[in-house]
Amino acid sequence: MNQPAQPAPDASTAAASPAARGGAVTPPPVDWNRRHLLDLERLSAAEITALLDTAQWMKDATGGCRNKLSLLSGMTCANLFFENSTRTRNSFSLAARRLGADTVEFSSGGSSVAKGETFVDTAKTIEAMGVDWVVTRHSTPGTPHLLARELRCRVLNAGDGAHEHPTQGLLDMLTIRQHRGRIEGLTVALVGDIAHSRTARSNLWGLRKLGAHVIVCGPATLVSPRWEELGIEVAHDLDAILDRCDVLNLLRIQFERQSTPSFPSIHEYALRYAMNGRRMRRSKPDILIMAPGPINRGVEITPEVADGPQSVILDQVTNGIAVRMAALWLLAQGTGEET
């Protein structure tokens, strides 16, 4: 039988959380000077580690992201979502409120965007209301980068098309680090719709910078051989790589981003790529099963795996708040100019 995933000893312990006991403590200083979090490709290993260390501090200081700090009271965070989202939006809102900041919500449905306003004008309008951060999600790659050039406030990318979703990449890495104590030397497979996945891109940059071996695995129509030019291992047969993997990150098929079908049927996809009990028994006993969600049971993952002992999917959700608290905090400290 598989071993249950063991939380690392430093997770959620009161010893590391003086703030949770009421002390006016701030996170320890780290190597960070940016005002925007746009993608992980441009970050150094030191900057990623700074975010992860600060996120771990946030989680510990709030008793697992349940308690409130007042590190950023008086500041305001705007959620500017041009694409549907429930979990990421709520996670950012909670993160801001856990730090004592106010939040303002904006979504494209029924807003000025529907009346023909460009997203930059919409963002400028929100900024003029006096916000300190704009958290943005949009279906087009690069939109956070445009906002960072146009706005004076800090910009966080909460997902730009198929490009990046940096806080998702960070929370995945934080989850791995909590369970394994490290990233370096691990083999992590990203499985599924790599072509359309911003989660895959953020993960693969972040993981590589921290020394993991990354495999992208999925149908040949969704996993380009060009990834090999960038030093990423490409695989199309999940069964052939399973016994080498320390972590599997199971990505959703993004039907909404495909102009022509990339594989014959969900039936065929599930038989070839779904993580199921049979494949679990052929994996390393301590393999970590992750999924950015929303998960499609029966497509990329079966219920016995999603709900099984190696699944850390719900840890990922909690860590999402910690990572977003860390990002909001560090950007508030940053003074550097983005290029």
């Binding site: 790659p141 990046e164 060009r226």
Partner: peptide, 20 residues
């Protein structure tokens, strides 16, 4: 046209990385 639906840039390593 049917090979270029939704395309905004040259398809290659850069478009792969940028998700465009």
């Amino acid at each position: 046209p049917e090979l270029s639906i939704g395309g905004v840039m040259h398809e290659g390593q850069v478009s792969l990385v940028l998700g465009l």
